[in-house]
Design a binder for these strands. Structure first.
Ligand SMILES: [Zn+2]
Ligand SMILES: [Zn+2]
Ligand SMILES: [Zn+2]
Ligand SMILES: [Zn+2]
Lengths: 157, 157
DNA sequence: GTCTTAAACGTTATATCATAACATACGATA
DNA sequence: TATCGTATGTTATGATATAACGTTTAAGAC
């Protein structure tokens, strides 16, 4: 399990604050709260799961509230969306806008985000060859993590 | 626009038939019909669009019928799913099981499937470094195709 | 041929994910 | 403080996908 130092949350929030200032955008309470929840979770989570947590806190938001916050955070590159899982996850790589490359264990759903600059280069080249220009990309790798692989071997030798 | 020779359909269906025989599986009428529809479409299409077409033909299937056929075709590698689009598309690369690499124009939705063996190698290596083993992967590249790029330039110079 | 059985399919209902549309509140700035 | 664009609240609905269960079908055993 990844450790998550207590200052990671504040580092990410501070970074988001700063970027929003620089872009003349507002990290409103809802947006900030959603980002905070995503950072605190270790796994990617669904929009409705975030919604439920907001409800438990006393807010009474409807789905559009959460989706609008997610859309904002996605646009600013603060979070990523895992399309095969219908889940959202905070970006842990501050500083540079990048495409997400995700390793997802299909058994326990443990997820690792890589920067994958070399993947991007390969894809840009492939796109160019086909007269497409890469805007952004989603790479989701369905995997087995080491513990799950061992578990599988034990079950089916 | 890609041309689609009239024999493409029969080639793909014959291949699917043959593979199913070899794997002791059945390419039932529904499965065959769904594969046929996917091949005939030039763009990826949604499950409900396929459902509507089946209804127009006189069948009266419910969603599970289509989804079960799609699941089968996905498992056999005859089609791919584009998770960011919630769409399904026939595989045009007969013969070898492979991961899908898709260039998708974000403006006109024109889609090209590449084999991308080098992408696979890169991803396998990245997974290994992180103690994940690659099972399969989805690569969707959000692009602008050449015509749409020119169109955009014309609109916003 | 009939029996057995697993796979496939039909059917109904429901779960899950996401957005349209419109009203209200807020916040910057003139 | 008046104005205007942005953000949020609220209600309803659209779009995608699956659970559960009963029936049919096809293939092999006898
Ligand atoms: Zn990231
Ligand atoms: Zn795992
Ligand atoms: Zn393919
Ligand atoms: Zn295009």
């Amino acid at each position: 399990m990844d450790k998550q130092p207590s200052n990671t949350l504040s580092r990410i929030l501070a970074y988001a604050e700063q970027e929003c200032q620089a872009r003349s955008l507002r990290l409103t309470p809802v947006r900030r709260r959603v980002l905070e929840m995503l950072v605190k979770h270790k796994h990617p989570v669904s929009a409705y799961q975030l919604l439920d947590e907001l409800v438990e806190e006393g807010h009474k938001p409807a789905p559009p509230t959460v989706y609008r916050a997610l859309d904002f955070l996605l646009e600013q590159g603060f979070i990523h969306r895992l399309a095969t899982q219908n889940n959202y996850v905070a970006c842990m790589h501050l500083g540079a806008r990048h495409m997400g490359v995700f390793l997802v264990c299909k058994r326990c759903k443990k997820t690792v985000e890589l920067l994958g600059e070399n993947v991007r280069d390969t894809l840009t080249e492939l796109a160019d060859k086909n007269q497409f220009s890469l805007e952004e990309a989603l790479v989701e790798v369905n995997c087995l993590c080491l513990p799950c692989r061992r578990q599988s071997e034990r079950e089916q030798p």
